[in-house]
Amino acid sequence: MFEAKLQQGVIFKKIVDAIKDLVKSVNIDASTSGLSMQAMDSAHVALVSLKLNENGFKDYRCDRPITLGLSIENLSKILKCAGNDDTITLQTDEEEPSSLKFFFENQQASKISEFSLNLMSLDSESLGIPDTDYSSVIQMSSAEFSRICKELSSISETVEIETSKESVKFSVQGDIGAGSITVKNNQSDKDVDRVDLQIDQPVKLTFALRYLNMFNKAVSLSSTVSLNMSEENPLMVEYKIDDLGSLRFYLAPKISD
């Protein structure tokens, strides 16, 4: 028996909206500790990893680990039927479920929707992601980072991110010209302005902006985003989800010649 009830169902809707352009089908692994999901994009350039802890759910029960193979497109269609204020419950009684039940309830419990989504059997391609001690970590407004990526992607497809003790520089070079945006440490009390740099080792890495713009669809999940980098390592972009878990994106760097 597996049942997970999320008080703020809108969070689940936002997560699916944030990843639906990147991955087509995913395995959600349910265990006693919560839900986890990991999937690569079709080009194997990026990886998304979701972890939702059981104690972030209103109700959570998972008698034994199960894997739920879902088409993101079909999941999206079902979630469109959930209101932003609804609670969302996922449920199945079977050990090898062929479908997953969804219940959407409005606040007054006066409207209850029930859907059953057919499951897919997907071979698990899960990669081992070592816990990395990143040498450059940037915490900043997710809206600001999303804006920087959007603006720079009109000049070039790739952005070079260079960190130093007191600032991070986003540089682009394209046919029309070049540009850079430098953001300094800023302990402002205004969320949108605050920038927190922890630079043990400066890095200079180049990434495809198309992927960063896709990752930034998660901006509605958290007002802050963290960029985690080490030389010769994929960038890890993390959106923490209050009291529930985190949505992480990994992006392989461009190999600068």
Partner: peptide
């Protein structure tokens, strides 16, 4: 031109 690297170069199959 910069070549795009692949994520499964960095992280191995479990």
């Amino acid at each position: 031109l910069t070549e795009q690297d692949y994520i499964n170069i960095f992280y191995k199959q479990d």
